[in-house]
Simulated assay, not measured.
Amino acid sequence: MSLTKPNQQLRRDLKEVAALLKWSGVNLMQIATRLSEAGHEQEARELIEAAISFQEAEDKMEGYAEEVKVGRIERMKPGTENR
């Protein structure tokens, strides 16, 4: 199934957001490790929780991008939302 240009852009945007979430989560985990090594376990745990929530959001964005790819989600033309 060929995607329309708006749906191609939507898929690219979702994949980009997923990638940003992934790298942000990786960075948070690195910072959490350094904090933990410096004796700031509570702060490290809070960052780890944030990193985990980023990973969950990343998985959702990847799933939505796949749904766009197979045609379950599509971008509508402006003004057709209520049809």
Rank of each mutant, 00 (worst) to 15 (best):
M1N: 07
S2D: 14
L3N: 07
T4P: 05
T4E: 08
Q8W: 08
Q8L: 12
Q9D: 14
Q9L: 14
Q9K: 14
Q9V: 15
R11M: 14
K15I: 07
K15W: 00
K15T: 12
E16N: 13
A18H: 08
A18L: 02
A19I: 01
A19W: 08
A19D: 07
L20V: 13
L21H: 10
K22M: 04
W23F: 09
G25M: 05
G25N: 06
G25W: 04
V26K: 08
V26Q: 08
N27V: 13
N27K: 09
N27G: 13
N27M: 09
Q30I: 06
Q30V: 08
I31S: 04
A32C: 06
L35H: 04
L35T: 01
E37D: 09
E37L: 03
A38T: 09
A38P: 00
A38V: 03
G39Q: 00
H40P: 03
E43I: 01
E43H: 02
E43Q: 00
A44G: 07
A44P: 02
R45E: 00
R45G: 00
E46M: 02
I48D: 04
I48V: 13
I48A: 02
I48Q: 05
E49M: 11
E49T: 15
A50I: 09
A51G: 10
S53F: 05
F54I: 11
Q55K: 14
E56L: 12
A57K: 11
E58A: 10
E58I: 03
E62V: 06
G63E: 04
Y64W: 12
Y64R: 02
E67R: 14
K69F: 15
G71S: 10
G71M: 05
R72K: 15
R72H: 11
I73Q: 08
I73E: 07
E74F: 12
R75A: 15
M76I: 15
K77Y: 09
K77H: 13
K77F: 12
E81Q: 11
R83W: 11
